[in-house]
Design a protein around this nucleic acid. Structure first.
Length: 888
RNA sequence: GGGCGGGUAGCUCAGGUGGCUAGAGCGACAGCCUUACAAGCUGUAGGUCACAGGUUCAAGUCCUGUCCCGCCUACCA
């Protein structure tokens, strides 16, 4: 006796199956296999902690693709690993250290790195176990880490190659600087945030005159570093001042008034204070006019000795207060106007960045960006959704040099060596033996690389590059990259560029950029906002499969995909529904085992419900496969949900009950077969539940393979329109009878008689053959009469389906008023529909111009509607008459 | 300033190249513990598809404009 519990309990089976799959090695892909390769590299999660909702979505979708392709017979590789994640990880460690009462600097570089590795050893395993918990079928034997030996070698190789090509260089340049993290940042790491600030209008006196020039600034403290005032060359207001000298308030310095077309005459006062050392645009102006770059901030954001002594050591904000006070006191301050504007913040620590001039390593990405654009135009890479292509082009076309050095410790140290004797620079894999100057004493560059440099190599560094490995030959370029659109520039673009630069080939053929998980208000879920769903809690409550189903079901093509608790709940109910359907089938198979050595499909009799079910399954296989091919995960989930619940459970299993009652088990065997195939279709979305059920189901004469994971993807056997038409009629009749019973409140226990009239012989035959067999399961009936024409029995309820009419005599229980209301509602609808169809057909242009097929459909529709309308009208009249009779 | 996405049922969303009577889940209402499932079953209600024009035989779908919402991007100090 099958002893399955009534309720599905995910906790009891999930761990079991994951271990089973792992032990059997199903997730491992051999580079030497002669199957067609299909490869995905995981976006390596940071080692910083726990799996968040974004990972859950991203990895569920990847797992769906990998499992599906594996079942299709591909040599499917999902390459896993983790990212050292540079600055973020350091920041978290620094917080830990602070709690311990120490600090990064107190520890020193070596000790700090040691601590980081210790921590990595613990936390990387944690994130991996979480990926396993959501069912990821990664090839764990191949797990990589961006800082491990092989990948570090790849990083050094890439760096040296690019250096030798002249694409990596050192330069003194203005770049974003984080005073908190003490490092330079790329533009991407700076997040502009709108804040409420002020416009400070300040008078700059003109030397040797009574005239003052009014400038406006949002950052008055930077005036300590001003080395000019700029106006537009054609600005008539200021023509007479160009070439004159202004006296910089508070500083006792003289600065020139210059003309530069950059200045916007309309904005502010049309006069711009120029601080070449602390503003990106001013820096450019400074270069054009050969202005002094006067640095007045220290690297950690305090006033230095280049400013008047009284401000020395103040923070940027304190200095602003003092400067404004002093300007006011000295009568230079004209006014303060509130002004909302965007200020750059470091995306990792939140500190306001300070544009700063420093000596940094840069990568000239333009040539590679150009190649990336061309490769994309040639179709070597495809973006899905397509709209992302435009974003990609726009970014690539306007790309700027990438500052790749970071003044941090956790990461790949640049393979740059300085000769201690002559300061000559060498890029090399190892310490050079000897310098050209004859010395042999070198020191390595202290800086580490931007963490995205190593992630940019991920698709080939994980496969053993720079060695010419079998993996690279087989799996590169990979098939598809799956990630959120928010890291298109950070990561995807760089992988494409570096792939072209190092491998001379794009790293993947397709980029699928999914939406970001949002809450019910459309706000992106994030820990900092506190609106996030915790994947692990969710899994504990609802089960992994329910969660995965909800994620795929929510995954529409939109940039933000709201995930509601109720959707996860729906996933759980779905899992439970499937569980119980399986339970029903398994319980009945005990009484009616599938005959040994025989294919269940072959033992079937061609009853309409079996033919219908197989037709619907075929359709479902086709739709599901098509949706997966096009990354329409939402459609996959919807299709399987609707099929399994509303066609398989609601209808087919009810037919099966009837057949069992008739001692005809073929329909049951087909149910087992259909469920088996559907478990295969659903496996990519809900791997655990489907495996559990699949293992228990008979597999058509012992065709069982070791696991659903490595079974085959179902093939459609073709649809059967005739069977579908037959069943549609039957189901419509059943629906109508149920509807009448429901709306007229016919008591549950009351058996009713049904009279059906139809002029169509074929329809009558179908109904006569099958209706009696099916109906009892769906609605309680005493007797059925089917005839070509029938008088409507007295005091009966009626339903009309085209030319077919259903009468249910309800003499004792009918509520004539209710029936009248019911019929007139349907009549009104029919009139409306007839009018609309009539109007279309009355239009001669429609007949002339619309395709034949559409016109035919419309005619048929109208005909059917007219019959319905007439019948309903007649019945209404009769009802009114009999009503008055009854009223006697 | 430019660009992109969105506005469809009370809520969250589907509606590839225009063509049956615009769908789902959740929620609501009514009735059912029907022997797989009350995490269930049956029935019902609920939409001028943001607004205004246009193209078309035909528009939720295509075009133009307007209004909201969100995002990306830009050197407006």
């Amino acid at each position: 006796m099958t002893n399955l519990p009534k309720t599905y309990s995910p906790q009891e089976i999930e761990g079991k199956w994951y271990q089973f799959w792992q032990k059997k090695g199903y997730f491992h892909a051999e580079a030497t296999s002669d199957k067609l390769p299909y490869a995905i590299v995981i976006p390596p999660p940071n080692i910083t902690g726990s799996l968040h909702i974004g990972h859950a979505l991203d990895n569920t979708l990847q797992d769906c693709l990998i499992r599906w392709r594996r079942m299709q017979g591909y040599n499917a590789l999902w390459m896993p690993g983790t990212d050292h994640a540079g600055i973020v990880t350091e920041l978290i460690m620094e917080r830990q250290l602070a709690e311990e009462g120490t600090s990064r600097t107190a520890l020193g570089r070596e000790k700090f790195i040691e601590r980081m590795w210790q921590w990595k050893a613990e936390s990387a395993g944690y994130i991996v176990s979480q990926l396993q918990k959501i069912g990821c079928s990664c090839d764990w034997e191949r797990e990589r880490f961006t800082l491990d030996e092989g990948l570090s070698k790849a990083v050094r190789t890439a760096f040296v190659n690019l250096y030798n090509q002249g694409l990596i260089y050192r330069d003194t340049y203005m770049a974003n600087w984080c005073p908190n993290c003490n490092t330079v940042l790329s533009n991407l790491e700076v997040e502009p945030i709108e804040i409420d600030g002020n416009f400070y209008h300040i008078h700059y006196p003109i030397k040797d005159s009574d005239v003052v020039l009014e400038i406006a600034t949002t950052r008055p403290e930077t005036m300590l570093g001003d080395t000019a005032v700029a106006v537009h060359p054609d600005d008539e207001r200021y023509q007479h001042l160009i070439g004159k000298t202004a006296l910089l308030p508070l500083c006792d310095r003289e600065i020139p008034i210059i003309a530069d077309a950059y200045v916007d005459r309309e904005f502010g006062t049309g006069a711009l204070k120029v601080t070449p050392a602390h503003d990106t645009n001013d820096y450019e102006i400074g270069l054009r006019h050969n202005l002094e770059q006067r640095i007045v901030f220290t690297r950690d954001g305090y006033i230095n000795e280049n400013a008047p002594e009284k401000y020395l050591g103040l923070s940027r904000w304190d200095c602003r207060k003092h400067v404004v006070e002093d300007l006011k006191d000295a009568d230079y301050l004209v006014k303060i106007v509130p002004h909302r504007h965007a200020v750059g913040h470091h995306d990792r620590c939140g500190m306001i960045v300070e544009p700063t001039i420093s000596l940094q390593w840069f990568m000239n990405v333009r040539p590679l960006a150009q190649r990336a654009i061309e490769a994309t135009q040639k179709g070597e890479v495809k973006f899905i959704p397509e709209r992302e292509t435009a974003r990609f082009y726009h970014w690539m076309e306007n790309i700027e040099p990438w500052p790749i050095s970071r003044q941090r410790w956790w990461g790949h140290r640049l393979p740059i060596w300085y000769c201690n004797a002559c300061e000559a620079v060498t890029a090399a894999m190892e310490v050079p033996q000897q310098c050209e100057c004859g010395a042999s004493d070198f020191r390595q560059e202290e800086d580490v690389l931007d963490t995205w440099f190593s992630s940019g190599l991920w698709p080939f560094s994980t496969m053993g590059w720079p060695e010419k490995t079998e993996e690279l030959r087989t799996f590169y370029p990979t098939s598809v990259l799956v990630t959120g659109w928010d890291i298109l520039f950070f990561w995807v673009a760089r992988m494409i560029m570096l792939g072209l630069g190092c491998m001379d080939e794009v790293p993947f053929r397709t980029v699928y950029l999914h939406g970001l998980v949002a809450d019910e208000k459309g706000q992106k879920m994030s820990k900092s906002k506190g609106n996030s769903i915790d994947p692990l809690e969710t899994i504990d409550t609802y089960g992994t499969d329910a969660f995965r189903f909800a994620l795929t079901n929510a995954s529409t093509p939109n940039p933000y995909v709201p995930l509601l608790e109720s959707q996860i709940e729906a996933g759980r109910r779905f899992a439970n529904k499937i569980w119980n359907a399986a339970r029903f089938i398994l319980m009945n198979l005990e009484k009616y085992p599938v005959p040994e050595e025989t294919d269940a499909v072959e033992t079937k009799q061609e009853t309409p419900e079996i033919a219908w079910m197989q037709s619907r399954l075929s359709h479902t296989i086709k739709t599901t496969t098509d949706a997966l091919e096009n990354f329409r995960f939402h459609e996959v989930a919807q299709t399987l949900y609707a099929f399994l619940w509303h066609e398989f459970c609601d209808w087919y299993l009810e037919f099966v009950k009837q057949r069992i009652a008739q001692d005809k088990p073929a329909a049951l065997w087909v149910a087992a077969d259909v469920l088996e195939q559907t478990m295969r279709l659903l496996h990519p979305l809900m791997p655990f539940l489907t495996e559990e059920i699949w293992q228990q189901l008979p597999h058509g004469g012992g065709r069982r393979e070791g696991s659903l994971t490595v079974s085959s993807w179902p093939e459609p056997i073709g649809e059967n329109p005739k069977a579908e038409a037959t069943m549609t009629t039957l189901m419509e009749v059943i629906d109508s009878i149920r509807s009448i019973r429901g709306e007229l409140n016919v008591p549950i226990g009351a058996s009713v008689e049904v009279h059906i009239q139809s002029p169509n012989t074929e329809v009558r035959e179908r109904l006569e053959t099958y209706l009696a067999q099916y109906l009892p399961a769906f609605t309680r009936l005493a007797d059925i009469t089917i005839a070509e024409s029938l008088p409507k029995p007295h005091a009966s309820a009626e339903a009309v389906i085209g030319e077919l009419a259903i009468y249910i005599p309800l003499a004792d229980i009918i509520d004539l008023e209710a029936e009248h209301a019911r019929l007139s509602k349907r009549h009104q609808q029919a009139v409306k529909d007839v009018d609309a169809a009539q109007k279309t057909l009355d239009n001669p242009n429609f007949i002339q111009r619309a395709p034949e097929k559409v016109v035919e459909q419309k005619r048929a529709q109208l005909e059917r509607l007219l019959v319905e309308q007439e019948k309903l009208a007649r019945s209404l009249t009769m009802l009114t008459e009999s009503g008055s009779e009854n009223g006697d």
